[in-house]
């Protein structure tokens, strides 16, 4: 392996590593807040990329139908709750957001020829189609089991993963697609080409990671995830000794008690020691430890790149590697 090959492979490894680091961060966030090990994460990557590819090819992306179906299910589930509680005024916004939005997207697709639009517009539109699926999947699959053990949530995550794989095959078929790079600019460093796209990927990941860090560590909103998780969400105001914490500006709304426990452990007093068994578990996945994890993922993927580049191994062991990067502490 000469220096040029080293640089090429290294570049590839760092790019993949940046993407994986972002994924690892997402997994950590989901786990600390919901205790769900979000195995279907991979499907969201695939759906995002394949939706973009379908839009570029001028095809109608199946994600729209999935969004409509999932949105309708959420509307039904939450609608029943609202009807039962006689909160009729909240029905229209619920239906508008969960059914109206997918329908509007479908209408837009029919009316506007997408393939002529610039890449950034298509990318944004595919994100509009895929991102709302996340909360919808949570509402349908996980929220009814919010108080179940981590194990049950894990099995549910695996089941959702299966269902989404099947749906992906149904919507996009088994063939691969190719989307163009955001930029064709190329640089040259020490004789090895450096693609502009690579820089973009690394930059985007870095910006997102830093932004998420500041959001969750430095803002009141981030520290008190202000989500209305319906009547079953558990109240967070459990520990009277923690009055000074900002969560209590939103009494009754901050339902993420597990995140709260994790935060409390960082606090000066051991008021939550009795919950040590659980918060310890969570804090091991804490955002504070993220740097180490990102380094580990990068290291593993770099290693894998070199190994693959060197002996051209026929079978990818990447899932297992990415997994071990995530699971290792």
């Amino acid at each position: 392996m000469d220096f040029q090959v080293f640089l090429l492979l290294g570049q590839d490894g760092v790019t993949n590593g940046a993407i994986y680091a972002l994924l690892a961060l997402a997994l950590v966030l989901v786990f600390t807040v919901t205790r769900v090990i979000f195995i279907p994460q991979g499907e969201f990557i695939a759906f995002g990329a394949l939706t973009l590819a379908a839009l570029q090819a001028g095809k109608f992306p199946g994600t729209v139908w999935l969004l409509l179906a999932a949105g309708s299910a959420v509307a039904v589930l939450d609608g029943i709750v609202l009807l039962r509680e006689r909160r009729f005024s909240r029905l229209p916004p619920l239906i508008l957001a969960n059914v109206g939005f997918p329908l509007a997207c479908a209408a837009l697709l029919w009316l506007v020829p997408m393939s002529n639009l610039p890449l950034w517009a298509l990318a944004s539109f595919s994100m509009l189609l895929v991102v709302p699926l996340g909360p919808m999947v949570y509402r349908i699959a996980f929220q009814p089991l919010a108080s179940a053990s981590t194990l049950v949530l894990l099995i549910v995550a695996v089941a959702v993963h299966l269902a989404l794989i099947g749906l992906g095959l149904l919507m996009f078929g088994a063939e691969g697609w190719r989307t163009p790079a955001f930029t064709e600019t190329n640089f040259e460093i020490a004789g090895a080409p450096l693609q502009g796209q690579t820089l973009l990927v690394i930059l985007a990941s870095a910006v997102l990671i830093v932004a998420l860090y500041f959001f969750f560590e430095r803002t009141i909103y981030g520290k008190a995830p202000d989500g209305d998780f319906g009547p079953h969400g558990r109240q967070a105001v459990l520990y009277p000794g923690c009055r000074d914490w900002c969560f209590f500006r939103h009494p009754g709304r901050a339902h993420y008690d597990h995140l709260l426990r994790f935060r409390f452990l960082d606090g000066p007093q051991g008021i939550c020691r009795r919950h040590h068994w659980r918060s310890g578990l969570v804090s091991r996945c804490g955002i504070g430890r993220l740097a180490g994890r990102i380094a580990r993922v990068l290291f593993l993927l770099l290693g894998e790149r070199f190994q693959r580049g060197y002996c051209f191994h026929p079978h990818s062991s990447r899932p297992a590697l990415a997994f071990s990067g995530f699971a290792a502490h």
Binding site: I140, A159, A163, G166, L170
Partner: peptide, 24 residues
């Protein structure tokens, strides 16, 4: 569905979620 593939996993995935929610 008009195409071939392992589409039963969609059904199984959804069924498993429902079973865990309703009849654990």
């Amino acid at each position: 569905l008009g195409q071939s593939g392992n589409f039963e996993i969609i059904f199984f995935g959804i069924a498993m979620v429902l079973i865990l929610q309703w009849a654990r």
